[in-house]
Amino acid sequence: MIGSPHVVSERNSVRLVMAKVMAALVPATLAHAWFFGPGIWVSLLLCLLFGLFFEAFALGMRGYPLKPFLTDGSVLLTGWLLALSLPTLAPWWLYAVGMLFAVLVAKHLYGGLGQNLFNPAMVGYAVLIISFPTHMTQWPAPGDLAIHVPGLAEAFDLVFAGQGSISPDAYTSATPLDSLRTQLLNGKTAAEAMTQPPFGYFGGKGGEMVAVMVLLGGVLMLMNGVITWRIPAAFLGGIALTALVMQLIDPTRQAGPLFHLFSGAAMLGAFFIATDPVSASTTPRGQLIYGGLAGMLTVLIRVFGGYPDGVAFSVLLLNMAVPLIDTYTQPRVFGASAPRRPRV
C-alpha cells in the first residue's frame, strides 16, 4: 500500500538536487583550473573515485543495494567539495585519507545518507588539517605568481610520485590568510600586508576570482530553488559583521569584511557547505542563527585561532548545535498562537 499522494513531483529527486549543486560548482572549478593550473582535475578525479570506492565498500558492508545509493550523487558532491577545499598537487593518499574519513566515518558510521550529524567533507578536511598540517598548507600559487605551473602530466606525477624533480617552492606559495597572519606577526599592519603579492583586488589573487565564481554558482542555486537564502545570507552576514566590528576595534591589524568574504573557503562555506541540508538547521529562524554563528566563528577562528581557515571548524561546531537550535526555533504552526516547543 503506497497511499496518497498518488503523484509525486517529477522535478524533484535526490539525484536531481545533487546534480544541480554539482552543476553550480562547475564555474568555480573552471576558475580554479584557470588560475591555479590543471592540478584541480587530478585532485577532483581522485576525490570522486575514492569517494565512490569507499561508498561502495560501506554499502556492501551494510547490506544496502549499490545502485540507488551510488547514483544518488551525494558522495560525488562530498568528493567535489573536499577537492575544492584541499590544496591541489598534494600526495594522493591525502585525498584518500580525507575521503575515507568523510565517507566511512562521518557518513556511514552515523547511518549513511541523511543520518550524518556532521558535514562529511568538512570532517575529512578537519582530520587532514589536524593530522597533516604541512601538506595542507602547501597551496599552489596562482598562475602569475608561480615560477612554474605544472601541467596535467606533471600534476599526475606530483600527486602519485611525490615531488621528484620540481621543488615545491616553484609552484606553491602561502595562502593570503597565512600570509596575512605571518605579516601581522612580523609587526606589519593589515594594510601593509595586503599590498604583498598573494593579495588581489579584495581577497587573494586568483582565489578571489574562484570565490566570485562560487558566488555565481550560489546565486544560480538560489534562483533555481535548490537552496534558500537564509543560511548563505546569515553566514556571509555573520562574517561581514564580525570582520567589520574587528576592524573598527583594531583598524591596523584587521583585514576587514571584504577580504574575509572573498578569501579562503568563505564563499564555498556559505553556499555549498553550511547549506548541506542533512547537517544544517532546518527551521527558518534556526537557519539564520546557524548561519550567522557559523560566519562569526569563522572570522574568530581565522583571527584568533592557529589554523589557516575557520570555515570547517565553525561549520562542524555549529553542526553540533543544530539539534538544540532546531528545538528552540520551531516555527509557528498555521493558526497557532505561539511557536511550538517540542519537549526534549
Binding site: 500500500m1 497511499g3 547490506g63 544496502y64 543495494p65 545502485k67 540507488p68
Partner: peptide
C-alpha cells in the same frame, strides 16, 4: 492505518 513498509535495503 498500517505502518508503511518499504525496504530500503531492497530499493533498486
Amino acid at each position: 492505518w498500517r505502518y508503511p513498509v518499504y525496504m530500503l535495503k531492497q530499493a533498486a
